Amino acid sequence: MSELLDKIQNRVIDASITNETIGSLTVFSGEIIACDPLIPHHEPFAKRVSPGVYPVILWWHQEEERIAGAELRLSEEKPVRWEMAVRPGQNISSLEPGSVFGFPVDAGLGCFADARAIQEMERLEERLARELGDQFISFYDNKIEFILEENEDNWGNLLVKEENGLNVILFASGYGDGHYASYWGIGDNGEPVALVTDFNLF
């Protein structure tokens, strides 16, 4: 277990780490995606959760003044163990020592989203490109940048479908680009109580 996961499991707040609840994620389908929102073709994790609205918490490395991890809290119950979040077809036993299944980051951003929210985000990008024509630079420049600016470029809440509240919670990814794993926190009953993306600052 990483030091970050240990701190989250025990709800540790000390001189090295603090946390901040930044909003709630609407889960409609139960299929969760953690990814760089600007890299297309994302696949949800194999494990599903109950539809609902769940808080998203950022864990800050105090000395580095960077986001060490992002947590989708599914329950107030503390995890009793952690398991790497995998997508269909991924087998943890096939990994070489020190390797992880995770997602690549090329824009310094990660996110949590329902699978349907990612689909709606891609449609939003297509509509924006059509509407702006030659004024469309990129989805980041014409949309996401302004949402992040509201929170000093650290995080943002992108509403992609107003009718049902589907949204994408965006956050800066530690030191930036890289490859980051996510982990399910499992409760006493064997069900997930949290999902954490670890940005390897601890």
Rank of each mutant, 00 (worst) to 15 (best):
S24N: 10
S24C: 06
S24P: 04
L25Q: 04
L25W: 05
T26K: 09
V27W: 02
F28C: 00
F28S: 00
S29K: 06
G30P: 00
E31A: 03
I32Y: 05
I32H: 07
I32K: 00
C35N: 03
D36G: 00
P37N: 02
L38A: 10
L38T: 01
L38W: 02
L38I: 05
I39E: 01
I39H: 05
I39M: 01
H41Y: 05
E43V: 07
E43K: 11
F45G: 06
A46H: 03
A46N: 06
K47A: 03
K47S: 08
R48D: 09
R48K: 06
S50R: 13
P51Y: 14
V53D: 04
Y54M: 07
V56W: 02
I57W: 11
I57V: 12
W59A: 10
W59V: 06
W59G: 13
H61F: 12
H61M: 09
Q62R: 15
Q62S: 14
Q62W: 12
Q62G: 14
Q62K: 15
E63S: 13
E63D: 14
E64L: 15
E64T: 14
E65G: 04
E65P: 13
E65S: 12
E65N: 13
I67D: 11
I67E: 11
G69M: 08
G69T: 07
A70C: 14
A70E: 05
E71Y: 09
E71M: 09
L72E: 05
R73I: 08
L74N: 03
S75L: 14
S75F: 15
E77W: 15
E77K: 11
E77Q: 12
K78H: 14
V80K: 14
R81Y: 10
W82L: 11
E83Y: 15
